[in-house]
Design a protein around this nucleic acid. Structure first.
Lengths: 365, 365
DNA sequence: TTGTAGGCGTTATCAT
DNA sequence: ATGATAACGCCTACAA
């Protein structure tokens, strides 16, 4: 008796298939398949289609994903490649991607590359092995052979946050130029003229775009073009922020404001400035980029550029799905630039007169 | 001519299958299958197995995951359920899980529940639909019917960071009790006696364990057991930290130190204390729990308990895979408690005598 | 409108 | 040691 129960339980454990609901309704399995698919349901009599839906719900039928994939070659899974989930910039993007995907019945497999191209290549390999329907890459470099190759093989690809030089790859990015311009306008309005810059890695589109913007708007604003005011970082992290700041201070070039290519560089910069006895913002104003979580709780709270990471993630997913679902995708790749916003907090303040003496005619105002 | 090229390209685009490498070597497809599987390779002549390996590499053969899954009912995918990837506590866990899984050829599908039980239930539904081999849950409540059900259906489950009351579910957690004890010892050593507590949500094992520990060690240390010194939060976030702190201040109970059930509560608490003119740590010492990123850069840098999130993630994945791979899993569920470490920074300082006097005056009213 | 049948790429159970 | 063959569950021409 208990044995019987057990065996019954065991057979009932197996998930129901199309055949099970077909038997329950008394129709053929293909009829069920059609009734369950919204795109083919119209082939079926409303009445019987209704019975099928009911039975399917009653039996708690769930399509077998593997069988579906084997037959159709679609997995409803997309790969999401990021440098490091531990970097606070990325979680909102990931969340946006996942929310948008979920709304369409898709899911994401997230892989971390730590910004290493070989690791990215092997990640792409894994994802393709899983048969992902598309790839969203937040970890992309301006020139990225592996990603280019997978795109060339017909897999839809869109980058988010960063972009490739090759315009054939769709992208969702922030308005880097507008952000840097807003920062410079703000600092100039506070009376700063000698403004230093810690630039991001130039192999990343964000690093390059922000440096380009800095140079362009610096000139447009008539600020001094002193090469000693610019230092290149190797990575977007706090350690590089400290190193670059020390290089700047060692250079003996005078400056009253420091524009950092992102928040983490700024956090490191502030630590280094303090260590060298410079008060922020009393002596030197510092700005970041991204408006990371907690950056408003630092001392001083960071003046920075707020970007729409979550929205960017959503849009990237939508753009990708558009390409996946009508894979005819002959239309040109989508390139979106999201607006950004200056957030003024406590790390910027009016410039002090010091360093100003050389150009005292300025003071005439 | 171009048409021919195109069609050839098109056929060559299709990924090679077992049949393709079988044809290339001149053996049967099942021989190839055996040769490619380490567990069955010994059935095959070394020489021919060698040829197969070579050909497979040359053709760049990759197993079709869907076919494998359809046949074997294993996906090599595990579901990872978390409240919100945007909460800085979770990325290190996720990273640990993914790294450990990757080492075994597995991948994770991450889903966010925002801590809502119904959302968790539907997430579990999706994951089961995908046929995941197991589930790791960081978002679990002490009583969690959906997770219990899926575990009951035979899917391996392990919780991380939190645990369920039901000991049948394997878990990897931190030493909450040891952490709270270390905090209290530290504060008592600084001369604090009237120590308040913002407790976490009691439906979460972390919230309950830390409150239990607070009560027990408070009594063991002979500290005053004043109910007014304890306030319950509804969630582990900054807003609740502020609200609870204001409740504490409104209660007119005197205290010189405030133990918060996690870092985010502490961040909110410090903001609220400041707003009410209390200096941290000069007037009131504050402690957190978790040692979140950036918490060392706050002003004042937070004294807190460092937990091993990354390691916990890794261990959870390892524990799950152990259950997945020898799915006989008759052995008792694994329960791991990871050691924690007190990190003393600037938010705690020796107690001031001033509390006593104020209290005496109040007694007069 | 519905049923029939073939096949997606694997693995596993037979034979040989 | 290897080959033949039957599923796994689903979709989709094609036939009726």
């Amino acid at each position: 008796m208990p044995r019987k129960d057990l065996s019954r339980k065991h057979t009932s454990r197996k998930r129901p298939t199309l055949k099970d609901v077909a038997d329950a309704v008394g129709v053929h399995i293909s009829t069920v398949s059609r009734a369950l698919n919204p795109k083919t349901r119209h082939h079926i009599t409303a009445e019987i289609s209704d019975k099928i839906l009911k039975a399917s719900a009653r039996l708690n039928y769930r399509q077998n994903a593997a069988a579906y994939t084997l037959r159709t070659n679609r997995t409803r899974i997309v790969g999401l490649i990021i440098p490091d989930i531990t970097n606070p910039v990325f979680p909102p993007i990931i969340r946006g991607v996942e929310d948008a995907l979920a709304a369409h019945g898709y899911m994401a497999i997230v892989v971390n590359t730590d910004g290493a191209l070989p690791r990215e290549a092997s990640a792409i390999d894994m994802l393709c092995g899983r048969g992902v329907d598309g790839v969203i890459a937040a970890s992309v470099e301006r020139d990225d052979p592996a990603l280019l190759r997978v795109a060339g093989e017909g897999t839809p690809v869109v980058t988010v946050n960063r972009r490739m030089d090759d315009p054939a790859i769709a992208s969702i990015v922030n308005d880097e130029d507008g952000g840097i311009r807003a920062v410079l306008d703000h600092l100039v309005a506070l009376g700063h003229r000698r403004i230093a810059n810690i630039a991001g890695p130039q192999k990343l589109s964000t690093g390059k775009a922000r440096l380009d913007a800095f140079l362009r708007h610096r000139d447009a604003l008539g600020l001094p073009a002193d090469a000693g005011l610019i230092v290149m970082s190797d990575a977007f992290n706090e350690g590089e922020g400290e190193r670059c700041t020390e290089a700047l201070l060692a250079g003996n070039t005078d400056f009253t404001a420091l524009v950092c290519s992102n928040d983490r560089l700024a956090v490191g910069a502030i630590a280094a400035l303090r260590r060298h006895g410079r008060a922020v913002p009393a002596d030197i104003s510092v700005t970041g980029f991204n408006d990371m979580p907690l950056v408003d709780r630092l001392e001083p709270a960071l003046t920075t550029i707020r970007v729409q990471q979550y929205t960017a993630g959503r849009m990237a997913a939508e753009a990708l799905l558009a390409r996946v679902e009508q894979s005819g995708a002959g239309d040109p790749p989508q390139h979106e630039v999201l607006p950004v916003e200056l957030v003024v907090r406590a790390s910027t303040a009016p410039a002090r007169g010091r360093g100003r003496k050389a150009r005292k005619e300025q003071a005439g105002q």
